[in-house]
């Protein structure tokens, strides 16, 4: 069965792009969230195999959402999506329990590589 992914980003543009990359590689898009709060709520209901998480979002940022999701499920697999120049935030996210990160603008091969790595590990 295809592995299920929850995509969290406040921009429809970015969610569409990530969804295109992942569904093109055979993953199932289990749900989408446009804010940190939504991400936590959706995580509870869809129970995805992996979450992609933007850092800068309204109503709870990506890092707080990582902390909340890890508190719910210590085994949650979360991949951070950061822009250039956010190294410090990426480090904080990883310390909070995120497994890996990719940098925008996305290169499909990089995204898929990271998703496979996180799902495999």
């Amino acid at each position: 069965m295809a592995q299920r992914i929850l995509i969290c980003d406040d921009a429809i543009f970015m969610r569409t792009m990530i969804a295109d990359i992942l569904s093109g590689a055979g993953y199932e898009i289990a749900g989408e969230a446009a804010s940190g709060l939504q991400a936590v709520e959706r995580y509870k209901t869809v129970k995805p195999d992996l979450v992609t998480m933007d850092i800068v979002m309204p109503d709870m940022g990506g890092i707080d959402a990582v902390k909340a999701i890890i508190a719910l499920d210590p085994n949650a697999k979360i991949l951070m999506c950061s822009a250039m120049g956010q190294q410090a935030l990426v480090v904080e996210a990883i310390q909070s329990g995120a497994k890996d990160f990719v940098v925008k603008p996305f290169q499909p091969a990089r995204v898929l590589e990271a998703v496979q790595r996180v799902l495999g590990g």
């Binding site: 406040d10 921009a11 543009f13 970015m14 792009m17 800068v56 309204p58 822009a83 925008k104 603008p105």
Partner: peptide
């Protein structure tokens, strides 16, 4: 800040 950040990411893509 969030608006600029989002626009930056989309435009770069």
């Amino acid at each position: 800040f969030r608006a600029l950040h989002t626009i930056k990411g989309m435009a770069a893509s």
